[in-house]
């Protein structure tokens, strides 16, 4: 399988520009075949968007990238997913360490029912990423600044995170993910529960995050994909239909299914 993966790849897995490379990935939920033979490369400092109609498997695939599917008993993943050339499903890999490197932001803002400070400090604390309280303060401030919410919350770090507005909560969640210093940020429809203004703020943020991370975003909205991403993957019924530069996908798709979707005929 590995050999086959090596040969079928157009770009080598050792290519410095590739963060993630997934080859021939299949996912089963019990009897259901949710992802069918998907191969994708995710580049450094790039925003990659997964689009497609509901139930097409885009979220499922995203959750394979940091092994969040492990928490679901009936889910089974086969194929080869490599992060910096290392197989993340290798038995030697502790998913706990993987997830520190591959952070995740969810559909609904889910701040923990703790203070804002404790929310951000949660990751560094469990992974032991700091020595002194000052270190931790630095991590928290830095993360909040990078998530573009420092100015809004710096005076009330002790207030509960659940008291903020939806957009603020989602940016807290992003800051929380940044705090463990990940290489990749996975975002599962991060704006679907937000109003348009908050959405704009988060999108702007995603664009800034590209400087330091590679970002994978699952989105329902094609406009959003077009606005924030450089690469786009179109999923349909568990298949990866088309993957390429965002401009190309939206202006000149190769596959007729992609065209139907972006023109609004399916989805």
């Amino acid at each position: 399988m590995k050999d086959q993966a090596m040969t079928t790849l157009e770009t080598s897995v050792t290519d410095q520009n590739n963060k993630f490379s997934a080859n021939n990935v299949d996912v089963y939920y019990g009897e259901t075949h949710a992802i069918k033979d998907v191969s994708v490369n995710i580049e450094n400092n790039t925003v990659t968007a997964f689009i497609g109609p509901s139930g097409c498997g885009k979220s499922t695939f995203l959750r394979c990238l940091n092994r969040m599917n492990d928490t679901i008993d009936i889910c089974r993943v086969t194929g080869d997913i490599r992060l910096d050339g290392e197989d993340i499903y290798n038995a030697k890999v502790d998913p706990v360490q993987l997830r520190a490197k591959v952070g995740m932001v969810f559909q609904k803002p889910n701040p923990f029912p703790k203070s804002i400070y404790d929310n951000i400090a949660y990751g560094p604390r469990i992974h032991g990423l700091f020595k002194t309280k000052a270190d931790l303060d630095g991590i928290v401030e830095n993360s909040l600044r990078r998530a573009a919410i420092w100015d809004e919350v710096k005076d009330r770090l002790d207030a509960p995170g659940t008291g903020l507005s939806g957009g603020q909560q989602q940016r807290i969640c992003i800051a929380r993910a940044i705090a463990t210093a990940p290489d990749v940020l996975l975002m599962d429809e991060p704006c679907s529960a937000l109003d348009p203004i908050a959405t704009a703020q988060v999108e702007e943020l995603i664009d800034e995050l590209r400087e330091n991370f590679s970002v994978v975003i699952v989105t329902h909205s094609m406009q959003q994909a077009a606005r924030v991403s450089q690469k786009t993957a179109f999923f349909h019924m568990g298949n990866l239909v088309e993957f390429g530069d965002t401009t190309k996908i939206f202006t000149n798709p190769e596959d007729p299914r992609t065209e139907s979707y972006i023109t609004g005929r399916i989805g």
Partner: peptide, 18 residues
């Protein structure tokens, strides 16, 4: 307790007991 909170924690790399 909503599953979203657990997901959020797992997503950051917390173990189940944490």
């Amino acid at each position: 307790v909503p599953q979203a909170l657990r997901d959020g924690s797992y997503g950051l790399g917390a173990t189940q007991s944490e």
